[in-house]
Design a protein around this nucleic acid. Structure first.
Length: 626
RNA sequence: GCGCCUGUAGCUCAAUCGGAUAGAGCAGCGGCCUUCUAAGCCGCAGGUUCCGCGUUCGAUUCGCGGUAGGCGCGCCA
């Protein structure tokens, strides 16, 4: 049995067998049983289809199981259990072959194009289409995804919710790319309007305060009260030593630019980079905001009332219609946001996934309705709420800082617990769940802390691979690194024709096309001739358990893509580390038995590769020593 | 009042498109280092999955109705 994948093989075989039983098998799927006594894969086709030919599910399952072709390096046995499950037990030879494939291309394991035929290492067949739990579908080929996250106004330091969104968004982008998607990240920010004016006024007040002009040192009622504004004021004065005329707008523009650079530095330190920083003003400057208003009017989805212009969002699912132009002629924030999403669509993205803060979820229903009203395809717009982070220090809640105006800034978080622990903790829970974050726990370097549990497994393996005896067998420490510096060269090409969607012509279509650089991998990471290794000696329970867990890696990544939730990956890595620690405890890798030593070194090497790549995907280091 | 999120072991949370006996970690007790890293491993407990009804061969999962907590409901962003 060779490529295509084992899952494809099982599904194809089952389909043929079902047809010969006179059953029309629609949508045969495999799942991974909860209990491992049930084998590695299970299928419920008998329960679904038995009614078609009027026999009991178990009886049908028995017939299918009897006829199923087994082999020494694929499916070893098929059993019927429970109400009619078909349970597939995979042969050890299957896992040995899989390990050999990993050794040949350690970093490539788990990669996919999310299509059925060409993911040979995949434990479970990737779906033909990706349907997430919100019922949205992305067909194959529609693989350009844009992830927008953080998108905080550059008027203050980034807080922990931004940190959470940064961890999640960045991990999603990395994982989607690994699974063959074209995924980009964007940070959208407001560089104009009322907030910038207010920020400018706040900076001016702080400036007056530091320069002893008490009568001018009044921060506006709804201005920025945080003491960090003093830093901004001082920096402004250093950059503008001779200015005596104070203009809120000009100071605001300068301050926003300053703060944006600070945020970029904070995010870079957190190992999060964006493919594009998108200025809201850009949408005004090139007329896309006005075009959007015009388009809404032409589509007849607006009306005038009380001198204001309303968008009929209520007709498309919102609880109310929404004002898009106020009675004094200003456009509300919704218009550039809608224009921004039209722009994303025009740039050829099939999906826009926005990570929003918990205080913005009222905005989603309006935006969803607006997308519908403007006739963008269903499923283009997806908004996820990164829920609040409850910060604690040793069980005690952290209070708002007067200095920063937030409980904890991203920088303070990194200072206190480090990037690795912070990122790992943010990814342990569903995005939509509130997250308890105890800084004391994240700082602990002991068994209570899952980050170090996973990293320790990797460091232990490196320690083995450092042994002189290991090098004799041709194994080296893996040296592919974090891929956050991966280059994306982008160029914009004019579209052949505009994009057409349900009567809406988007004429100013500009597809961003990126050329991805090949990831450079040290050739030492690839093990030559792995099929010559005596992997068949890996038959102990702990060895096979570890191999099974390794085999789940592609499936786990597929689950992340399907649910648009990165948290299954952290759970997976903890489980993988546990399997390794257990193996390590029970079996000596380097011994006088040369054959067994070679086989176990290979197992260790494969495990390290998966841990390292898994940690890469969530932006966490895999240290070689701890 | 309306909308969104959440409710699972003492605590923090998992649970695959609706699947089989609902699983981990922590907290508690007891063991394991002259041998590749003890930041590790092993053993011992804990459940009306908030409540009710419905759909289904099968519900923690889907639907309806309650209930508790969080958040949001502006011609602010």
């Amino acid at each position: 049995m060779s490529n295509p994948s084992i899952e494809q093989h099982i599904i194809t075989s089952l389909t043929e067998l079902a047809l010969s039983e006179g059953i029309k098998p629609d949508n045969i799927t495999l799942e991974i049983p909860r209990q491992k006594e049930f084998g590695e894969l299970a299928c419920n086709v008998a329960m679904h289809s038995a009614a078609q030919i009027g026999i009991a599910p178990r009886a049908l399952a028995e017939r299918l199981a009897q006829a199923f072709p087994c082999s020494g390096d694929g499916v070893e046995a098929v059993n019927v259990a429970g109400p009619g499950f078909l349970n597939f037990k995979l042969a050890p030879g299957y896992f040995h072959r899989l390990l050999a494939e990993i050794l040949q291309d350690p970093q490539g394991f788990g990669s996919s194009t999310e299509s059925a035929a060409d993911s040979p290492q995949s434990m479970v067949q990737s779906p033909q289409s990706v349907v997430n739990r919100r019922g949205l579908t992305a067909e194959l080929g529609e693989n350009r995804w844009l992830f927008e996250f953080v998108s905080a106004n550059p008027t203050g330091p980034l807080n922990v919710v931004s940190a959470r969104a940064a961890s999640v968004g960045d991990a999603l982008v990395r994982i989607f790319r690994k699974r063959g998607y074209t995924a980009h990240s964007e940070y959208y920010f407001n560089d104009g309007g009322k907030q910038v004016l207010l920020f400018g006024a706040s900076v001016r007040a702080r400036l007056a305060e530091t320069e002893g002009r008490a009568d001018e040192a009044v921060i506006p009622e709804d201005g920025y009260q945080g003491e960090y504004v003093i830093d901004v004021a001082r920096s402004w004065r250093l950059a503008n030593p001779d200015v005596t005329e104070f203009d809120d707008a000009a100071i605001g523009r300068w301050a926003v630019d300053w703060m944006l650079k600070a945020q970029q530095a904070q995010l870079a330190r957190f190992r999060v980079s964006f493919d594009r920083w998108f200025r809201e003003n850009e949408l005004y400057d090139d007329g896309r905001v006005e075009t959007t208003v015009k388009r809404m009017t032409e589509l007849g989805i607006t009306y005038d009332k009380d001198d204001a212009l309303y968008l009929k969002t209520k007709d498309f699912g919102d609880t109310d219609d929404r004002v898009v132009r106020t009675s004094d002629g200003r456009l509300t924030y919704r218009v550039p946001d809608i224009a921004y999403h039209l722009d994303k669509f025009a740039r050829g993205y099939a999906r826009s996934v926005d990570l929003l803060g918990p205080d913005h979820h009222g905005h989603i229903i309006t935006m969803t309705a607006a997308m519908k009203a403007l006739r963008l395809p269903d499923g283009f717009y997806t908004a996820l709420i990164a829920q609040q982070v409850n910060l604690k220090r040793g069980g005690e809640e952290i209070k708002m800082s007067k200095r920063t105006g937030v409980m904890l800034t991203l920088d303070e978080l990194v200072d206190e617990v480090g990037v690795d622990a912070a990122r790992f903790f943010f990814l342990r829970r569903k995005v939509s769940s509130p997250l308890d974050f105890d800084l004391e726990l994240a700082k602990k370097h002991n068994d209570e802390n899952p980050v170090y549990y996973v990293q320790y497994a990797h460091a232990r393996i490196c320690s083995i691979l450092r042994q002189p005896r290991a090098k004799e067998f041709g194994f080296w420490i893996l040296d592919f690194g974090l891929k956050n510096e991966e280059a994306h060269e982008r160029r914009v090409i004019p579209a052949q024709a505009g994009i057409q969607t349900d009567g809406l012509q988007i004429e100013d279509c500009r597809l961003d096309v990126e050329e991805r650089s090949e990831t450079i991998q040290n050739p030492k990471s690839k093990i030559q001739n792995p099929s010559g290794l005596p992997l068949h000696l890996l038959t102990a329970k702990e060895e096979l358990d570890l191999l099974r867990q390794i085999a789940l890696f592609p499936w786990t990544l597929a689950a992340v893509v399907r649910t648009i939730e990165p948290h299954p990956l952290t759970s997976y890595l903890v489980d993988l580390a546990r399997c390794f620690h257990l193996f390590y405890q029970r079996h000596r890798v380097i011994s006088d038995d040369k054959e067994m030593t070679a086989a176990r070194l290979a197992l260790c090497y494969g495990t390290a590769a998966v841990i390292k790549e898994g940690l890469n995907l969530i932006g966490v280091e895999a240290p070689e020593r701890m």
